[in-house]
Design a protein around this nucleic acid. Structure first.
Length: 348
DNA sequence: TACTTCATCCGCCATA
DNA sequence: CTTATGGCGGATGAAG
């Protein structure tokens, strides 16, 4: 829980020639939005190059001007992020860069890499004994080069102690959102995700989750059929015994198989889809709250309201006011909600 | 708000 | 012996 007077969180991003622009701009945009939305300068964003000179991005269509070189950085860095790109593997062998990073590492509390930026992170040795995610294309090669690091080829994002890694490109934004959630709370992270028109879907433990890339439907035919049945019957009660009959499984097997196949429990899946449907109806129709609550299977509007508050931190009417289909011209037109519920530290 | 009731989840274990 | 299944029951949290 942050107080107003808390010093800024120093977040530095390592740049090098031919870094992937999205790996940089996506996460930084998210951190910047967190500042904007919270109306605090929580993140002090810095960019570093080896010599402090500008570098071209991959494709050379942009030039990035760093705010710092390694010599001008503050004493302590809270988070050090390394982006990926076509040059990442080569930079991992750049002893100038790696030496500077090794020297910097003890002054950092948390490390992150996006995409194949793991090559650079691993080269410093700080990932030894940890698990990392990386871009699918580099999984085998990275594992071979750094046998002391466990490379998880499936994970889109994962956290292993103070090492946070993500699989590639846009998943850097997911990594940033996860950090924002850890630093500033779930509500603010959701708010940032919404501004970026992303879904922040988190399920299960903190350690690993896959989001965008996870198939919408399971491979197992019985579970996939059941998912369609659920989606077609969201307005009705969906007790698990009934679902088990449809899937021709015992309730216990259904629960086990469903989680195995989809990564979520049956109930979590159903309420997630109910919420999604309700959001769609709030955005795209003018139907009343009671009707939407019934259509989405929440039963009553007060029930729906409770779920909205819990999952999104806003009421259905606020949601509609802000997201009903309407052109949004810019962030400066966004109004922050008036209620105290938006401050992440209001609830226990 | 406090309390009751009920469904769900999932570790555990016996069984096929 | 390994693996999948499904019943049991405690913990959890939602609903009223």
């Amino acid at each position: 829980v942050q107080e107003e007077g808390t010093p800024a969180h120093r977040l530095a991003v390592v740049l090098y020639p031919h870094v992937a622009a999205t790996d940089i701009t996506g996460p930084m945009e998210a951190f910047g939005l967190a500042n904007f939305i919270s109306r605090r300068r929580h993140y002090d964003l810095m960019t570093i190059t080896l010599d402090g000179n500008p570098v071209p991005v991959a494709g050379s269509y942009l030039t990035l001007c760093p705010t710092h070189s390694f010599d001008t950085l503050p004493d302590r860095i809270d988070t050090l992020l390394v982006a990926g790109g076509p040059a990442a593997k080569a930079e991992g062998a750049n002893s100038d860069l790696i030496d500077r990073l090794r020297a910097l590492a003890p002054r950092c509390d948390r490390f992150g890499s996006v995409c194949n930026g793991t090559f650079i992170l691993c080269a410093t040795g700080i990932t030894n004994g940890k698990r990392v995610a990386t871009h699918w294309h580099y999984v085998d090669e990275l594992a071979r080069m750094y046998p002391k690091t466990t490379v998880d080829g499936d994970a889109v994002f994962l956290r292993s102690g103070d090492i946070w890694t993500s699989a590639g490109m846009t998943t850097g934004i997911d990594l940033a959102l996860a950090m924002i959630e850890a630093d500033l709370g779930r509500k603010l992270a959701l708010e940032v995700a919404r501004h970026m028109v992303l879904y922040l879907k988190r399920e299960g433990g903190q350690s690993q989750f896959s989001m965008h890339l996870k198939a919408q439907f399971a491979d197992a035919p019985s579970v996939e059929r059941l998912q369609h049945h659920i989606l077609n019957n969201l307005s009705r009660p969906l007790p698990i015994e009934e679902l088990a009959l449809i899937a021709r499984l015992s309730t216990r097997s259904l629960q086990r198989t469903f989680r195995q196949e989809t990564g979520r429990s049956v109930g979590a899946y159903i309420s997630g889809e109910r919420l999604r449907l309700a959001c769609g109806l709030l955005e795209g129709t003018g139907k009343g709250f009671k009707e939407i609550a019934a259509l989405a299977g929440f039963g009553t509007d007060s029930n729906m309201r409770k779920v909205f508050m819990r999952e999104l931190g806003i009421t259905p009417s606020t949601y509609r006011a802000r997201f009903q289909i309407e052109p949004v011209h810019g962030l400066q037109e966004t109004t922050l909600p008036p209620t105290a519920a938006w401050r992440h530290d209001t609830r226990v």
